[in-house]
Design a protein around this nucleic acid. Structure first.
Lengths: 214, 214
DNA sequence: TGTACATCAGTGAACGCGCGTTCACTGATGTAC
DNA sequence: TGTACATCAGTGAACGCGCGTTCACTGATGTAC
C-alpha cells in the first residue's frame, strides 16, 4: 500500500499534502459544529496536525480563513437547493412547473438551514454583501449561487405568466426575506424548540404565503 | 446642590448607587454598539467605574448579565412597536384599522431593527425561546412583548373579518418570519448595503406581501 | 545518471492581549441597644 | 440622642485560559548543471 514514489504521479502532497484545502475543510467542520465564531485558526491547525503559524502560508489571517469557509458554506447551500430542484418532474403544465421550482428553491433553503445550522449561519456571517454573493466560488454545481437560483426561479415564474412582469423587480428580496426569517427563527431564535414536523409545516405554509403574496 | 443627607429620601445610592442598574445600562450600551458578543462583563464594570469582581454581587456570571441585557432589548423593541401603533388614527373602518395596526407592528419592528441593529440582534441572541419570550420583563409599556403585540394585531384582523378565522392559528410565525428575515438581511446580511429609501420600500412591499398572502 | 543548490512549506518558541472568575479583604452603611 | 456592632457592597490581586500573530529556523523537495 505504501507508495514507492517512482515516477511522481502528481501525488498532490509535498509536505503535508494540500494544507490549504485541509485547513479549509477543518474550518468548515468547525463552522458546521459551532457557526462562524467556532472557526478558530489554532483549532483548525490542531485538527490538521500542523503548527499554528503554518496556516499563514495559506491564509493572510484568521479572517481570510473564515471568508473561505463562508464561501464554501454558500456553495454547499447552493448544492442543497440544486438537489431539491433536481428532484422535480420535468413534464407538466409550465405554470405549475415554475411554481414547483420556486417552492423547491425555498424548501431546499429551509432544509439546509435545519440540517446544517452552523454552516447556514456561517454562510450569512457578516462581511458579505450582494456583490460578493455573486462570486462563482459560492456557487453550486450549476454555477449559480443561492441568490441566483432564487432569481432564476422568479424569472421562470414571469416566463410562465404566473408572476406579472411588473411585480418581478425586487421580488427576490421579498421571497428571500420570508424564507430566511423562518430559517433564523427556527435555528437560532425563539422557534428553536419546534419539532421537525411542525417546522416543516411552518415552511410549507410560509411558502404558500409567499406564492399568494408575491 | 449637594444633598445634606438629612431624612434619608430613599437616595437609592448606598455605595455606588444602584450598581445592578448601572451595569445593565452599560451592558445595554455595549450591545447597542456591538451586538451580543460586545456585552463584556469587564468592559461594563470599567465603564461604570467599578472593579470587575463587583459585578458578581449582582449577576451570577457574564451570561446572567447578557440575559438581562437581552430582556431589556426585547422590551425596547416592544416600546418601538407600541410607538408605531400609538401614531395611528383611532376612527375609521374597523377592517382598515386592523390592517393598519398589523402594518404598524411590522413597520415598528423593521424601524427598530434598522435604528438599533445591535440591540435588535441582542434581543434575538440564542438561549431564548418562545416561553421566555412571554416574560413580562421583556414587555413594553402596554405590558405586551413584541410577539404578543403581533399576536394581538392578528387577533384584531380576525375580529374585523379581514383574516379568516381558520387561517389564524400559526399566522404569527408567518408574518414574523417575513419581517424578521428582511430585518436580518438588512442589518447583518447581504442587503446591508441598501440605502434607507430602498430599505423602507422593501419593507413596505414585504408587508404588502404578508397582507395579501396571509 | 549524479551532485550542488535554492526554494519555501512547515517548525518551535515566544509575545501580548483581554477575558471570566476566585478569594480574602475592608470600610461605609444601617441597625440594635 | 449616642455608641457598638454586624452586614455586605465593592476592592485588589491574582489565576489560568486560549486566542491571533511574529520571527528566525530547518530540512525535504524539485531543479539546474
Amino acid at each position: 500500500m505504501t507508495d514507492t514514489g517512482i515516477s511522481p504521479p502528481k501525488r498532490a502532497t509535498y509536505r503535508h499534502g494540500d494544507l490549504r484545502r485541509a485547513l479549509l475543510e477543518a474550518g468548515t467542520e468547525l463552522a458546521r459544529d459551532g457557526g462562524p465564531d467556532a472557526v478558530v485558526l489554532r483549532e483548525a491547525t490542531r485538527r490538521v496536525g500542523v503548527v499554528p503559524s503554518a496556516a499563514y502560508r495559506h491564509f493572510a489571517d484568521r479572517d481570510a480563513l473564515l471568508g473561505a469557509v463562508c464561501s464554501a458554506a454558500q456553495s454547499a447551500l447552493a448544492v442543497a437547493m440544486e438537489a431539491e430542484l433536481a428532484g422535480l418532474a420535468r413534464e407538466g403544465d409550465p405554470a405549475d412547473a415554475a411554481r414547483a421550482r420556486l417552492r423547491a428553491v425555498g424548501t431546499g433553503y429551509l432544509r439546509f438551514a435545519q440540517a446544517e445550522p452552523g454552516l447556514f449561519q456561517t454562510a450569512f456571517s457578516a462581511s458579505d454583501n450582494l456583490r460578493s454573493a455573486a462570486s462563482p466560488i459560492r456557487a453550486g454545481d450549476s454555477g449559480l449561487t443561492p441568490f441566483q437560483l432564487l432569481a432564476a426561479a422568479l424569472d421562470e415564474l414571469v416566463e410562465a405568466d404566473v408572476l406579472p412582469r411588473e411585480r418581478r423587480p425586487g421580488a427576490e428580496f421579498l421571497a428571500w426575506s420570508a424564507v430566511h426569517g423562518l430559517a433564523m427563527l427556527l435555528i437560532d431564535g425563539p422557534l428553536r424548540g419546534l419539532d421537525h414536523a411542525r417546522a416543516q409545516d411552518a415552511g410549507r405554509r410560509l411558502i404558500d404565503m409567499v406564492e399568494r403574496g408575491l
